[in-house]
């Protein structure tokens, strides 16, 4: 019995600790805001620990200490100092620290003058809109790319219900509220990929509403953004051309846009460069041809209640061609 308990607690501990590393751990920071939140977290933890220890010591002295200590602790002054002055000091410190942190980001983006990014939460995916310096916009989905070392102001909006944007290794979480535009500042401090997800229950497929954040050196970021702004690549092989024809004649363009083609839907994710993203269906599937085929034909099985109907109308060859075409949209 004891052994079983040990094993269970061991497994539980592993489960808990597994959240401490990995691409979505809040204890690993790859961003300035996240590291500031991290230090605030450790300060708050340390102060809480100190207060707890202080209280325990005071209780011990009150119970078993020498009479002089008991006398000292029972005076009114001890209650005033320990019960009012100390909490006011500690909590004020934490409040000031926290508020400064929140304000710091805004000032930084104002200084840097980098163009902003808008993220619109939708059931159950993220529309990511990059604003270019010339005023144009580039729509993408389910993946946020950031230049390292540049504070970026990210506007958070929603098209339907309340969502919450949380990229733990970049910054804190912030709700997306209907009719409002909330702004968060994110500054990546090192290149690399991390994961984030919707942190406010938003209905059916909420658990599968995630995204990747890819931080790139500024030069690479600019090169990527100019590629992202371009129209879709023209299909090269016979199979890709068949795939494109199927895409255009099967109604995919009713909801999806592929810039540079007649597919101009506005309901579903922009697929102009879908082949270059890290994942499909809001970080639900890896991005490969097999995943495209599975998603098209059985997406309700993979991500129940998502708003795309299953297109189980293709032959295996047609599905292959369609997947090849979508994968080729780098």
């Amino acid at each position: 019995m004891k052994r079983v308990l040990e094993r269970c607690s061991g497994a539980a501990l592993l489960l808990v600790l597994s959240a401490c590393t990995g691409e979505q751990s809040a204890l690993v920071s790859r961003g300035r805001e996240a590291s500031e939140i991290g230090s605030l977290f450790w300060i708050a933890t340390a102060v809480s620990a100190a207060v707890t220890i202080l209280v325990i010591i005071a209780i011990m002295f009150a119970l078993w200490g020498p009479p002089t200590w008991k006398d000292l602790l029972s005076r009114e002054r001890a209650v005033l100092l320990g019960g009012i002055v100390l909490p006011v000091l500690v909590l004020t410190y934490l409040l000031v620290q926290g508020s400064t942190l929140l304000q710091a980001g805004v000032a930084r983006t104002q200084r840097s003058g980098e163009p902003s990014i808008t993220i619109v939460g939708k059931r159950w995916w993220w529309e990511v809109i990059y604003h270019l310096p010339n005023g144009e916009t580039v729509a993408s989905a389910n993946e946020l790319r950031l230049p390292v070392g540049r504070p970026i102001s990210v506007r958070l909006e929603t098209a339907d219900v309340i969502h919450s944007f949380w990229a733990p290794q970049l910054g804190g979480k912030l709700d997306m509220i209907p009719g409002r535009s909330n702004v968060i500042t994110l500054e990546a401090t090192e290149p690399g990929t991390s994961r984030g997800q919707c942190a406010e229950y938003c209905g059916g497929a909420h658990a599968l509403m995630a995204f990747y954040v890819v931080a790139l050196p500024p030069k690479d970021y600019r090169a990527w953004l100019s590629r992202e702004a371009a129209d879709a690549r023209t299909p090269q092989t016979e199979q890709e051309r068949l795939g494109e024809r199927l895409f255009m004649t099967s109604g995919c363009g009713a909801c999806h846009t592929v810039r540079g083609t007649e597919a101009r839907g506005v309901i579903a994710p922009d697929l102009t460069h879908v082949g270059s993203r890290r994942s499909l269906a809001a970080a639900t599937l890896p991005n490969d041809e097999e995943a495209f085929a599975r998603w098209i034909a059985e997406n309700q099985h993979i991500k129940p209640e998502n708003l795309m109907p299953e297109f189980d109308v293709f032959t295996p060859q047609q599905l292959e061609a369609l997947s090849a075409y979508l994968s080729s949209l780098k």
């Binding site: 004649t249 009713a254 839907g265 309901i267």
Partner: peptide, 21 residues
């Protein structure tokens, strides 16, 4: 269509250019 209600345009599928199914 009507994007707010997630309604795609009918003619995206029901047009002469689309699949004859």
């Amino acid at each position: 269509g009507a994007a707010r209600a997630q309604i795609p345009p009918c003619l995206a599928c029901h047009s002469e250019r689309s699949s004859d199914r």
